[in-house]
Amino acid sequence: HHGSGALAALHADGPHAGLPVTRSDARVLIFNDWEERKRSEPWLRLDMSDKAIFRRYPHLR
């Protein structure tokens, strides 16, 4: 199991509170979210491209 239990660094406060600090933090969040959702949506594709990251977390651009 590759990303399970990996912890992402999140901004503690300010405008980005609760959001990932780096792209690799964002990838951890996206992976964990996908892993949760694919139980009920097995067709869901995992997209951890930069484009997917920016779409979801525009502050990382």
Rank of each mutant, 00 (worst) to 15 (best):
A26D: 02
S40H: 08
H1M: 10
D25N: 01
R61I: 13
D50Q: 05
Y57A: 00
A8H: 11
R61H: 11
R61Y: 13
H59L: 00
D25S: 06
L60R: 00
G3D: 12
G5C: 14
A17C: 07
A6I: 15
A26L: 01
R56A: 15
R27S: 06
H16G: 03
A6V: 10
L29D: 01
A8L: 09
P20R: 01
G14V: 15
G14W: 04
V28L: 15
R39P: 12
N32D: 09
N32L: 14
I53Y: 01
I30C: 02
T22S: 08
S49F: 02
L10N: 09
K38L: 07
L60H: 01
L29G: 00
D13T: 10
P20D: 00
L29E: 04
F54G: 06
P15M: 07
G3Q: 14
R27M: 13
V21K: 14
F54N: 12
P42G: 05
V28W: 15
D25G: 03
K38Y: 11
S4E: 13
A8T: 05
E35R: 12
D47N: 05
L46A: 02
N32T: 11
K51N: 13
A6H: 12
K51D: 11
S4P: 10
M48L: 11
P58Q: 01
D47P: 01
F31M: 09
D25F: 02
H11F: 07
G3V: 14
I30D: 00
G18W: 03
G14L: 03
F31W: 07
G14I: 04
H59C: 00
M48E: 03
S49I: 02
Y57C: 00
H16E: 03
V28M: 07
R45P: 12
D47S: 05
G14H: 04
V21T: 05
D47F: 03
A26V: 02
H11W: 10
L19K: 07
Y57V: 00
Y57Q: 15
G14Y: 04
R61S: 12
T22Q: 06
R27N: 02
S40Q: 09
V28F: 05
P20A: 01
M48D: 06
L29F: 04
R45G: 06
A9E: 08
P42V: 05
S4H: 07
W43N: 09
D47H: 03
L46M: 12
A9I: 14
H11R: 05
L60T: 01
R45V: 12
K38S: 08
Y57M: 02
A26I: 01
D13Y: 07
